[in-house]
Design a protein around this nucleic acid. Structure first.
Length: 497
RNA sequence: GCCGACGUAGCUCAGUUGGCUAGAGCGCCUGCCUGUGGAGCAGGAGGUCCCUGGUUCGAGCCCAGGCGUCGGUACCA
């Protein structure tokens, strides 16, 4: 290729925040999604798939005056000049679906797994395309549905191998928050927007701590990098009200409800919210979900979006040490809540709904650091090598026999010698390599190499290659007739769930 | 979005006050070894020093802008 041609080459490049996902991660994600679906189905949720693209106004992110969709979503105009956008969650599409299908049996309970898209600053474990796994009950205002969300969250996390002490579901109620805000506003009138900003500040509790929240509510906060965030400038007595609320000890679910009750006693919505929390507590207790797994936590906010009642959040409670040696927390991997107004947007009819969503990729990353996922990137654990090309028929037969027995087996289809074939087997994550040449043929045998054992043993073997080759401690022979059994025996050594 | 740091081989990095042909370790490939991955030895390939422009006799190094990565912050359905 000449210089000119080289300059005309297309650069192989990929969008910021998007990624190629390779075999090991993809297989692990598929296994994880399978387990998640099993739990959802155990509760009677049924699958639904909706398009990745929706009209931007359906997604509910539209700035009428700016005549272009919100920043934060991928969007474009179609041939009719309509704004189209990639979905940024699975809840808005669900609301649209329910609005378009008024005759669904209700409560309508569906789950959905798929990619969603957000124009956000990418970071480690944070991408612009990522998987969510949602389940929702639409058409019921019963707190039983909300309590059930918490139960499904528990069951899902434990199905993924996370023990009860390693996660906690935190529950709060937007109405309680609103009750507290009413009280704060009563102490001194404040602009409408301030309510939202107060919630924002509370939402940062995890990161900045109680003191940080106090600063954000008052004069402002300077962080470690020297950056200054302007505060809301609330009066001291207003701040004290909020701090007293945030400071509630999280002893028992009932105890928290009692404390909340005294705080929001004067607010109608506040009392309503506490009532909802009490119902959820009762339902969870009835179902056997104790305070080791689900707690009521007044500091949970869950963004500002469309939540109207109970909100829940599943957090991983253990610390992890990243590759740079920094201790971090994984935090929220599961989130949800009640959104009673979302369908009404389309139909004008009341349609209460509640549900929750897993951040599949984030949870997968967490499980990886916990060592709870199989990192094998291979689909067939067995490689049938080809030592002698005149025996191709034998090799094909061996591979077919294994496949018929339910063992995934790959026949080596490259052109290289036996040494390279072993290297290929090893590099591509095979567990077993089969060898049959004239020696084995004559005796009616097959040589079976345990590649993982060989990998292990090779660490302790010295420099005597000749001895190593003669002994072949990781290799044995079996009767050709016993092929399937012998391979199964080796595979059983490394069986994982 | 804003602030900051960083950007040299596949990876981790070195590279003097600006100075001949830009280095190391690991990895990769080949051979020793025509029936054996991992050890050893020998050899080899691999670079637009992020990009563009500027200063200079001369730029990996200095300057400006851009892009990317990382950290913080804002936003977060």
């Amino acid at each position: 290729m000449g210089k000119a041609a080289k300059q005309n080459r297309t650069v192989a490049r990929r969008l910021k925040g998007f990624r190629d996902i390779t075999a090991a991660d993809l297989l692990a994600r598929d296994r994880m999604i399978t387990r998640i679906r099993e739990v959802y189905e155990r509760y009677g949720f049924t699958p639904l798939e909706t398009p990745a693209l929706e009209y931007a106004d359906v997604l509910g992110k539209f700035l009428p005056d700016a005549d272009r969709p919100d920043a934060g979503i991928f969007s474009f105009r179609d041939e009719d000049d309509e704004w189209i956008a990639l979905r940024y969650d699975l809840t808005a599409p669900l609301s649209r679906y329910v609005a378009m299908n008024p005759n669904l049996p209700r409560p309508f309970r569906r789950y959905q797994v798929g990619p969603v898209y957000r124009v956000e600053k990418p970071g480690p474990d944070r991408f612009r395309e990522f998987y969510q796994s949602d389940f929702d009950s639409v058409g019921t205002n019963s707190m039983l549905a909300d309590a059930e969300c918490c139960m499904v969250m528990c069951d899902t996390l434990s199905a993924l191998g996370i023990a009860a002490g390693e996660y906690i579901i935190r529950v709060n109620d937007r109405k309680v928050l609103n009750g507290v805000l009413e009280k704060v506003a009563a102490a001194k009138t404040m602009p409408e927007a301030t309510s939202l900003n107060i919630l924002r500040s509370i939402d940062k509790l995890d990161r900045v701590g109680l003191v940080g929240v106090r600063e954000l509510l008052g004069p402002g906060r300077r962080d470690e990098s020297g950056d200054f965030t302007r505060g809301l400038g609330l009066e001291p007595d207003q701040i004290d009200l909020l701090m007293a609320y945030l400071d509630i000890s999280t002893a028992s679910r009932r105890g928290v409800c009692d404390e909340l009750e005294t705080i929001v006693r004067d607010s109608e919505v506040g009392r309503e919210g506490v009532g909802e929390l009490r119902e959820i507590d009762q339902a969870l207790t009835d179902a056997g979900y104790g305070e080791d797994r689900v707690i009521i936590d007044p500091t949970v906010v869950r963004g500002l979006a469309y939540y109207t009642g109970p909100v829940f959040e599943g957090v991983l409670t253990f610390d992890i040490v990243d590759d740079k040696g920094i201790t971090r927390q994984f935090g929220s991997v599961f989130g949800g809540g009640r959104y009673d107004d979302l369908v009404e947007r389309f139909t004008g009819q009341k349609m209460p709904a509640t549900g929750a969503s897993i951040g599949v990729d984030r949870l997968l990353a967490a499980l990886r650091t916990l060592g709870k996922i199989d990192t094998q990137g291979t689909t067939a654990p067995v490689l049938v090598t080809r030592l002698d090309k005149s025996l191709n028929a034998q090799y094909q037969q061996m591979a077919a026999e294994l496949r018929d027995a339910g063992i995934n087996a790959e026949l080596y289809v490259g052109n290289q010698g036996i040494g390279k074939q072993f290297k290929y087997a090893s590099d591509s994550g095979k567990t077993v390599a089969l060898v049959m040449g004239s020696d084995e043929m004559e005796k009616g045998e097959v040589s079976i190499k345990d590649l993982r054992l060989g990998d292990e043993l090779s660490k302790e073997v010295g420099n005597d290659r000749r001895k190593w080759l003669e002994e072949q401690p990781a290799q044995f022979t079996a009767k050709r007739a016993d092929l399937v059994k012998a391979v199964n025996d080796v595979l059983a050594r490394y069986a994982t769930t």
